[in-house]
Amino acid sequence: MVGLLALFVYPFLVSLYWSFCEYDLINPPRVVGLANYQQLASEFASGTGIAKALWNTGYYALISVPLSIVLGVSLASLLSCDIRGQSIFRTLFYLPSVIPVVAASILWMWLLNPTDGLVNSILGSLGLWKPQWFASPNELVSANAFASSAWANNATPIGSKDALILMSLWGMGNFMVIYLAAIGDIPKSLYEAARIDGAGPLRRFWNVTLPLLTPVIFFNLVMGLIQSVQAFTQIYIVSEGRGAPADSTLMLSLQLFLSAFQHLDMGYASAVAWLLFAILGVSTWLLFRTSRRWVYEGVR
């Protein structure tokens, strides 16, 4: 217990202290009060630095987490149908999540090469658009994407963050197995009862599976949010370590890393970390508050 405190709580507090310091990792820290937070505020006000990072992180997290929940739940419920080869399918879907991030990122940069990557070759042979993926700072979820000009002349509004989201969906297997396990744990009698009431498969999913999954969905929502906001390695690799192209992949985690170890500004980096902490803390708290409305707590 003491060790736990030492290893987790001590670094926790030290970083809080640093966020009020000027610290370059070489010379001892010097207290500068709120300067780092003021810097954050001024960047936020002018829409540079941290503001961009916040936007990029939000875009990534708020799209990839819900999508991975939808995909994970659908896959898990498909897998729990009475079918053969379940364990093989299960393994196939789970596998990508254990591929080391370094290897996965390189693989995807290769697959998503705009000119002759596998994905675009397939899209091309189907006569579809060939997005620029990691080469473009565009965003699919934006007002601009509705303009027809965005899709004209071989152009697409799909860019680097969308590619990262795709990558994250590929690696959501570890969440899927949790859903799968939870579905396996739902008493068969409930389905029987529903069937007797004349409910079809979709209804059964909607009225039995989904409500009973909400606690697990909730857990995955919180964990997924934490994970996606803190995602670093893949972003570092695909962005040439600087948020390329045109700062479109400059996320909070990368911003933090660059300011700590390239700009030698650990104080500022700690302030970013605590901002991140505050955001995650508040959203987790909000989720817990609202969870009472939609998370099912019956049965047990």
């Binding site: 000119t115 620029q132 080469a135 473009s136 071989n154 152009a155 697409t156």
Partner: peptide
């Protein structure tokens, strides 16, 4: 778009 595609 063409430049991004080709350059990447």
């Amino acid at each position: 778009a063409e430049i991004a595609r080709f350059r990447h």
